[in-house]
Write a protein that binds this DNA or RNA. Structure first.
Length: 345
DNA sequence: GTTATTTGACCAGG
DNA sequence: CCTGGTCAAATAAC
């Protein structure tokens, strides 16, 4: 908890300082670029701070955080759900109760930010598929320690059609491997989860490379915008009785119990993470957008946003609420419970 | 040598 | 039969 607090204070302090700087740059002689840069940095600080808070808040059933204005999103911040829709239907159901959620990662660069998509885990690619209707192939990754530690976490990386700087990363399962992240890990950052990048250098046809890490791409923009959208499928049987409103923070607690217990039983591995994070209600729409700076530090860990395994397909496929009110709901604020952050240590 | 990626085959679900 | 997801042999990187 101290750590989080420090980070929080740090970021807020930094944000304040940056704001001052920005004020100094409000004069006409200052370049718009500079101002924009400062704005981005400020937003980074905010987002990071919010992310920290989000950790604590995520225990709350119906947390919804929407921070879409991350530095880089000015370009195209429209949250998209097409891919998710597809996924949601096609998810193979044999494996039930595997939590699944999607992060939309926007790759930007410029501000000396490292590669995107470094979530602090070691992934190993085990497949790639061309997906119908998508211009880019989808990459399939599993945790490197699958055999060593039986970590069943997997993820899919799908590059967005329209905006190649956006990658939809769908995670499945939680990491049980010890080497993983939490805060410290990711901070070591620069380690690329997807090593492919190296090879890609020789590759002309990146159209077929969904690989986020390509140097060139990284150079394209600023920062990394990470949106986390949880969506759970896999549980045909479990449909949220009361998910109608993603923003609702009330009335879902009841549901929580069911899902919670179930989640716990079937996904014990989650325990290694932090059981308290399992908050079914969160699933509908969890938007967490991270900026480049976040990525530098430990915040690549989008996984911390918990999702239960209810079948939220429907909701998700109509992310209107999320889409339409990107900035709207910040109901997380009142609910922080730092006490639970202990789970991370 | 080891370990990771590529890529077509294979399988299950719809 | 088509599609998405996984496997595994071949290959590349280290």
């Amino acid at each position: 908890m101290d750590r989080e607090q420090n980070i929080l204070i740090n970021e807020l302090t930094q944000g304040k300082a940056l704001a001052k700087q920005l004020r100094n740059h409000l004069n006409p002689s200052s370049s718009p670029e500079t101002r924009e840069f400062l704005v981005q940095k400020i937003l980074c600080s905010y987002e990071k701070a919010l992310s920290v808070l989000n950790y604590g808040a995520s225990l709350k059933p119906n947390l919804e955080v929407s921070i879409l204005e991350s530095p880089c999103s000015f370009r195209n911040s429209s949250p998209r759900s097409e891919a998710s829709d597809q996924d949601s239907k096609d998810v193979y159901k044999k494996r039930k109760t595997v939590p699944r959620w999607t992060e939309q990662v926007k790759v930007c660069s410029g501000t000396g930010l490292e590669g995107p998509l470094d979530d602090g885990y070691c992934w190993r690619k085990y497949g790639q598929k061309d997906i119908h209707g998508a211009n880019f192939p989808r990459g399939y990754y599993r945790c490197t320690h699958r055999h060593a530690q039986g970590c069943l976490a997997t993820k899919q990386v799908q590059r967005s059609d329209e905006d190649p700087t956006i990658f939809e990363v769908t995670y499945r399962g939680r990491h049980t491997c010890s080497q993983n992240s939490h805060l410290a890990m990711a901070s070591t950052s620069t380690k690329n989860e997807v090593p492919i990048e190296k090879k890609n250098h020789h590759n002309q046809q990146q159209e077929h490379e969904e690989n986020p890490k390509q140097g060139q791409e990284v150079m394209l923009n600023f920062g990394t915008d990470l949106k986390v959208k949880t969506e759970d499928l896999n549980n045909e049987e479990n449909i949220f009785p009361s998910f109608s409103f993603p923003h609702t923070s009330i009335g879902q607690e009841n549901v929580e119990d069911d899902l919670f217990s179930e989640t716990m039983m079937e996904n014990n591995f989650m325990g290694s993470f932090s059981p308290t994070f399992i908050s079914p209600a969160t699933s509908e729409s969890n938007y967490l957008s991270m900026s480049p700076c976040n990525m530098n530090n430990n915040f690549g860990v989008g996984h911390n946003v918990q999702t239960p395994e209810s079948d939220l397909t429907d909701i998700i496929s109509t992310p209107t609420s999320v889409t339409n009110s990107p900035f709207g709901d910040f109901d997380f604020s009142p609910n922080f419970q730092f006490d639970n952050l202990d789970c991370f240590t």
